[in-house]
Simulated assay, not measured.
Amino acid sequence: MIHVLFVCLGNICRSPMAEAVFRSKVRSAGLEDKISVDSAGTGDWHLGEPPHEGTRSILKQNAIDYTGIRARQTKADDVTRFQYIIAMDDSNVRNLKSLSEDFQKANVSKLLDFIPERKGGDVQDPYYTGNFEEVFDMVNEGCDRLLAYIREKERI
Rank of each mutant, 00 (worst) to 15 (best):
Ala40Leu: 07
Glu117Gln: 14
Ile58Met: 09
Tyr84Asn: 07
Leu5Arg: 05
Asp89Phe: 01
Asp122Lys: 01
Val135Thr: 14
Ser98His: 12
Met88Trp: 02
Asp77Phe: 11
Gly142Gln: 06
Phe114His: 08
Tyr84Ala: 05
Arg70Ile: 00
Val4Lys: 08
Lys75Arg: 15
Gly142Trp: 05
Ala40Asn: 07
Asp38Leu: 08
Thr80Met: 03
Met1Lys: 08
Met17Thr: 02
Leu59Lys: 09
Ala148Ser: 13
Ile58Pro: 12
Met138Arg: 03
Ala71Glu: 02
Ile115Asn: 11
Lys153Cys: 03
Arg70Gln: 02
Ala87Asp: 06
His52Arg: 08
Glu134Asp: 14
Ser109Asn: 13
Ala87Leu: 09
Lys153Trp: 00
Glu101Lys: 15
Gly48Leu: 11
Val135Ser: 10
Tyr66Glu: 13
Ala18Ser: 06
Phe132Val: 12
Ala20Lys: 00
Lys110His: 12
Ser109Trp: 10
Asp44Val: 08
Lys153Ser: 11
Ser91Pro: 03
Pro126Lys: 04
Ile85Leu: 10
Ser91Arg: 05
Ala71Trp: 03
Phe82Ile: 04
Ile115Cys: 12
Arg118Gly: 11
Ile2Trp: 05
Val7Cys: 04
Ala18Asn: 04
Glu154Asn: 08
Ala87Trp: 08
Asn140Trp: 06
Gly121Arg: 09
Asp113Leu: 07
Arg23His: 13
Ile2Lys: 14
Arg145Ala: 07
Pro116Arg: 15
Phe114Asp: 00
Cys8Gln: 04
Ser91Phe: 12
Lys105Arg: 08
Ile150Ser: 08
Asn140Asp: 15
Ser36Val: 10
Lys25Asp: 07
Asn11Cys: 03
Asp78Leu: 05
Val135Arg: 02
Arg155Gly: 01
Asn92Asp: 14
Ser91Gln: 14
Arg118Cys: 14
Glu49Phe: 14
Lys119Val: 00
Ser98Gln: 15
Ser109Glu: 10
Cys13Leu: 03
Lys119Met: 03
Ala71Met: 04
Ser100Ala: 12
Tyr66Val: 03
Gln73Ser: 09
Gly48Tyr: 07
Asp89Glu: 15
Glu133Cys: 05
Leu146Val: 07
Tyr149Gln: 09
Val26Asn: 02
Asp137Val: 12
Gly68Val: 01
Ile64Val: 15
Asn140Thr: 02
Gly54Val: 04
Asp137His: 10
Val108Ala: 10
Glu53Leu: 14
Asp77Val: 14
Leu5Gln: 02
Glu134Lys: 07
Ser15Gln: 07
Leu111Val: 01
Ala76Phe: 09
Val139Thr: 06
Val21Ile: 15
Glu53Gln: 14
Glu152Leu: 10
Thr129Leu: 12
Phe114Leu: 05
Asp77Trp: 10
Leu111Arg: 02
Gly48Arg: 13
Pro126Gly: 13
Pro51His: 06
Asn131Asp: 13
Gly54Gln: 04
Lys75Trp: 04
Leu96Cys: 11
Phe132Tyr: 15
